[in-house]
Design a protein around this nucleic acid. Structure first.
Lengths: 241, 241
DNA sequence: GTCATTTATTGACGCATAGTCAATAATTGT
DNA sequence: ACAATTATTGACTATGCGTCAATAAATGAC
């Protein structure tokens, strides 16, 4: 018997509801406050039914993370076609990363949880695969821009260096910076007055270090990033909280 | 009554034992497997006695993190006096960071936990302060090297940029890179064959971007880092696992 | 050395949560 | 209408955190 369309629709709907609820619960009561009992109570279903959808709590978290990764993937795709100039497109991706964290702080929080806590044992191979695929497609988008830069002679990579290597640096820089920002509330008093601006500069200087033309001394990429954020992401309201 | 010396000594000894045990348990059964009951059982003390030392689990984790931060602080101090040349000393600090993660992977794992999970509510102000102080002293050591670079005219910081801003970039890059490395086992098949080497290059190019002389095109900082690791950290055995 | 007082240790207890599963209710197909 | 299938329930087990009254050990006054 083929799965009835209505049934399947209802199932997916409820699954989405569970995830929405879990996300908002995560915001309100934090990671430790997130409990299956509470989800069940709030959903007005019994626990058993929730367990029909997700075999454990970790799987819910991973599903949330996957939503986040997918969301960012979309934003990267938008940003990666912004300008004909490769380095400006790269700046655009930086702007997208910024926009993502600011617009969906909870999504980033979930990503942090997933990337640090060890919760892999209990999760399904399917969802883990999806996560890898998001990571990979994201990486490909950005390294595609790098390849464009190389193709257009704006950039020459050092020996033994792949476009993905360059992206790994940017990725680390971004992820690390937002983690440090989130977890430390004494940056300002320690001489780091505007960490976001500093992250932007670090990215620019790293790319300058690679010799990606035109250098940040010649073009104001800060302005480019502001422009991307205003024109590409400016008028969209945060639909997924 | 002044605290008896012997009593106090015994107390500290047991506290150290608890932390050692917690750390090795963390390695064996992961963050989620770490439980107060198990610690108590393994210590052959009752739970109540463990709670005489630490008011909750989070406090134990934070204490472990503080040990880790202190350890790294020491390594940074050693590395920061290695060479008369400011940029070489900076490379040395990079080498120390590398050595730290490789020699004490568990320490780094604890740091990741502390920086992502929200466990601040229950911990004592005292330990939180100690953590901040470690972070701060670490930052000061590294930004001190930056200041030396500026003083010796090897480096000129951009306008509105503090030495701490520069360090924030390196810090983010390192923390992010090791987190990504730890949490992703598909780097190689995605074109990032040697992430540690890539991290090194990213650091060098970032500093090149700042114009810190001599540039990595003139000096082989890779070799400097290997040298630091061999000569400064080479013959010390990993005493704290 | 004895015993009262202080201090340390214990483990049973209350409460919260993850995950299971037999019993029950609802839906479906004939 | 009713048998077969599928969905839902919530009591139940197991585990873990943190508490606290009861018990044991150490201390010091005499």
């Amino acid at each position: 018997m083929i799965t009835s369309t209505r049934k399947e629709r209802e199932r997916l709907e409820r699954e989405a509801k569970i995830l929405d609820l879990a996300r908002s619960m995560l915001r309100q009561v934090g990671y430790h406050g997130l409990s299956m009992d509470r989800i069940a109570a709030e959903m007005e279903y019994s626990k058993g039914t929730i367990y029909q959808h997700f075999p454990n709590k970790e799987e819910i978290i991973l599903a949330l993370a996957n939503q986040a990764l997918e969301q960012r993937l979309g934003m990267f795709q938008q940003a990666a076609t912004w300008s004909p100039k490769s380095r400006e497109r790269m700046a655009g991706i930086g702007a997208a990363a910024e926009e993502f964290v600011e617009r969906y702080p909870l999504h980033f929080a979930v990503e942090q949880i997933i990337r640090s806590a060890s919760m892999w044992e209990k999760t399904s191979e399917e969802r883990r695969k999806f996560m890898r695929s998001c990571d990979q497609r994201c990486l490909q988008i950005v390294s595609g821009v790098v390849r464009d830069g190389v193709a257009q002679d704006d950039l020459a990579l050092p020996a033994n260096t792949t476009p993905e290597d360059l992206v790994f640096g940017l990725w680390s820089l971004n992820f690390g910076a937002y983690t440090v920002i989130t977890s430390s509330d004494t940056l300002e008093e320690n001489g780091i007055a505007n960490p976001i601006a500093t992250l932007r500069r670090s990215q620019n200087l790293l790319l300058d270090g690679y010799g990606w033309q035109p250098l940040s001394s010649e073009v104001d990429y800060d302005q480019v990033m502001d422009q991307v954020r205003a024109e590409v992401f400016g008028d969209e309201q945060p639909n997924t909280p």
